[in-house]
Simulated scan of single mutants.
Amino acid sequence: MNSTKMEELYTYLDDVALYLETNGEVTYLEGLAEAGENLFRGEVCQSVNPEQKKWLLDKLSSMDLESVSKEDVRKAYQLAVLKGMKGAVQPHHSMTPDAVCLFLSYLVNKVLNKSEEPAVLLDLAAGSGNLVNAILNQSNKSLSAGAFEVDETLLKLAFVSANLQKHELQLFHQDSIEPIAFQEVDLVVTDLPVGYYPKDQIAQDYVLKAEEGHSFIHHLMIEQAINKTKAGGFLFFLVPNFLFQSEQAKQLHEYVKGKANILGLLQLPKSMFQSDQFGKSIFMLQKKGEQTRQPKQALLAELPSFNKKDSLADMMKQINKWFQEELSI
């Protein structure tokens, strides 16, 4: 059987990550970033002994990056990251599922294709960069991006992944709830971290801060995202299904309604999650501006399983019709 380019790249990344984990003082995920760095630079970047260097060079010479498509690079890299995350203990090491990345890319293309101008995208919690890279790969127009990630290992993985896919992606090693120096953008897409934000002093500057105790990080990030979006710009968040059921939900709803038009809430298939409590939805907003208006009818739907091609095609027809009727796109 001929292995595909994606499988060949995955094998290279996995073999080198394992080798560096076994022979060096690095984790599999750190080794994976090193494997990608070697491939991008076309040389061995690690301080290793001659025998190890020969092994790494032999591996490197067996791999031709130019023959692999950007999407295959992303998928091979993502598979290796997923393998590494199974071994990692940090609960925040999780990845936006591939089907969700592609569905969000479809929604992004819907709203961006209305304009001919190049656009700028922002992700406030990039993780290993899978979501932002998927959107850049699928975009039909000139799109550059900025992304923030507080975890150093995930940031390095995102950096190497973007390099291998030749994307114009500015990465920042920073907690994006803190004041950030980044231009206003046309679009925000973020898989929101869920939980409490520990830095109460920084949260004090937010309208959505808690009256007492820690504030919700997912609420603060929505506020930061709206602040960083141009008038008329779009925002897509992956949110927990319980977003509007918490004790601070009323405050969040009123704030969002004041700043943006709520376009819709698309619930992801239940089959994607271990239990209902982990279920997520895509929350769609447009920041208010002179040319914007609140849709007469928000787009509310429960998405069918991404494996059910016919049901999904029907749903996308309905979504296309909604965009045409409500937003003229």
Score class of each variant (00 low, 15 high):
C45S: 11
C45W: 03
S47T: 15
S47V: 15
V48H: 06
Q52N: 09
Q52D: 13
L56T: 15
S61M: 09
D64S: 15
S67R: 10
R74A: 06
A76M: 02
Y77I: 06
V81K: 03
K86C: 06
G87K: 13
A88C: 14
A88I: 14
V89F: 09
P91H: 04
P91E: 03
H92M: 02
S94N: 12
M95V: 14
M95I: 14
D98Y: 07
A99N: 07
A99F: 05
V100G: 06
L102M: 13
F103I: 09
F103E: 07
L104I: 14
S105W: 01
Y106K: 07
L107F: 10
K110Q: 10
V111R: 14
V111C: 14
N113T: 10
K114L: 14
V120C: 05
L121N: 02
L122F: 08
S128L: 02
S128R: 00
S128Y: 04
L131V: 09
S144R: 06
S144V: 04
G146W: 00
A147Y: 00
V150R: 12
E152L: 02
L155W: 00
L157K: 01
A158W: 00
F159T: 12
F159G: 09
S161C: 07
A162P: 07
A162D: 01
A162T: 08
L164C: 03
Q165P: 13
K166P: 02
L171I: 08
S176T: 02
I177Y: 05
P179R: 08
